[in-house]
């Protein structure tokens, strides 16, 4: 079809439409006049004198005011109890508050932070936190992925096995910590009972070289089921044809997973990663339950336990607050890239 015809048709339709509009609304303004569809069009447009009643009406009709009852209460609650508390905590960390009595807000400085970064205990705890974070997260992801792939391959329809691996995740930290405390017991624990057959008797919890590894192992045991479920959901969303196409394309099982399937699990990896890393940062309850006190065995002190110990055992409130802020910044470092990637993909 030659194009001039088409534009003629287009023009005549447009001119007929504008005729129609002129007749209907008497508006002869040009085509570009904005069309308001949000119901606010009747307000204020063309009204010369904006009296008080007009302004009230516009206020009542505005979307912002209308939506207030829906978002304002949770906004205030979150603002006060979460972000307000964080702000206050930061303020305290700038004072020298210790022991009983009110903080002195007149002299604010970063002295606590300076002390913190110079303290060996803090450096130690930070290093342990980092090791725990990385080792725990990586092991959980790998183990979870392997379990998910095995389950997806052989037992696509059987939910029982999924439950078996997920069960530890449903248990409380306190319960699993007690369980592992018994397992790791140097004399009566089941692990050493087995190892003693070979003449070994490691002190899992007492030995500073072993204790962090033992804690990581126990946490991985508890969390890998979660990672597995996340991966399994991701795997089952991949159509069979992708596996088949890869087989026809000549990929071996390993290259098929490595090049075709696992890259498609990017979303699952990110979700699992964030939950696991946050879990590692706040592993305080597990350690507290495992050792029964604020002070874990040497070699297993992490920022979370150090923070609680400084604040509640030693009543170094300002110092504890400073540790809390450091921990908070670490958590932000984990969450912000996630939120940013979600935002970039338009999922937020």
């Amino acid at each position: 079809m030659p194009s001039p015809d088409r534009t003629d048709v287009g023009r005549s339709i447009r001119s007929r439409l504008s005729d129609l509009r002129t007749r209907l609304v008497g508006d002869t303004g040009d085509d570009e006049s904005p069309v308001r569809t949000d119901g606010g069009a009747t307000v204020s447009r063309g009204s010369a004198g904006t009296g008080l009643s007009d302004r009230l009406r516009s206020l009542r009709n505005s979307r912002f005011v209308g939506s207030l009852p829906f978002w304002l209460p949770p906004f205030l609650l979150m603002g006060l109890f979460v972000y307000g508390a964080i702000g206050w905590n930061f303020l305290i960390s700038l004072t020298d508050m210790e022991g009983f009595g009110d903080p002195d807000y007149s002299a604010l400085d970063f002295q606590q932070y300076a002390e913190l970064f110079g303290s060996e205990a803090f450096i130690n705890a930070a290093r342990n936190t980092f090791v725990l974070l990385v080792a725990f997260t990586v092991l959980c992801l790998v183990l979870g992925l392997v379990l998910a792939i095995l389950l997806d391959r052989t037992l696509r329809l059987q939910n029982t096995f999924r439950l078996v691996y997920l069960l530890p995740f449903s248990l409380s930290f306190v319960v699993t910590a007690q369980l592992w405390a018994w397992m790791y017991d140097i004399d009566n624990g089941i692990i050493n009972s087995v190892l003693s057959l070979g003449g070994l008797r490691p002190d899992w919890i007492g030995n500073p070289q072993l204790v962090l590894g033992a804690v990581i192992f126990a946490l991985v045991w508890q969390f890998s089921g979660y990672a597995m479920v996340v991966f399994l959901a991701g795997l089952q969303a991949i159509p069979d044809e992708h596996f088949e196409a890869a087989r026809i394309d000549g990929a071996s099982t390993i290259t098929m997973y490595w090049r075709v399937i696992i890259p498609q699990l990017r979303g699952s990896v990110i979700s699992a990663l964030v939950v696991l890393m946050i879990g590692a940062l706040k592993a305080f309850d597990f350690l507290y339950a495992l050792f029964g006190q604020y002070r874990p065995a040497a070699g297993a002190d992490i920022l979370a336990t150090l923070m609680v110990r400084e604040a509640y055992s030693n009543q170094h409130w300002a110092y504890g607050s400073a540790i809390a802020i450091v921990l908070y910044v670490l958590a932000l470092l984990v969450v912000i890239p996630y939120l940013y990637s979600q935002y970039r993909r338009g999922a937020l």
Binding site: E244, D249, G250, Q264
Partner: peptide, 29 residues
């Protein structure tokens, strides 16, 4: 094995690998 049969298959759902470019999709085999 499917890969050793000297065949190529076109699937109803196309089964293109979503994380690869067209070039990578075509090169993969």
């Amino acid at each position: 094995q499917p890969a050793d049969r000297d065949i190529a298959m076109v699937f109803q759902s196309y089964a293109l690998y979503p994380h690869m470019t067209v070039r990578e999709n075509m090169s993969f085999g």
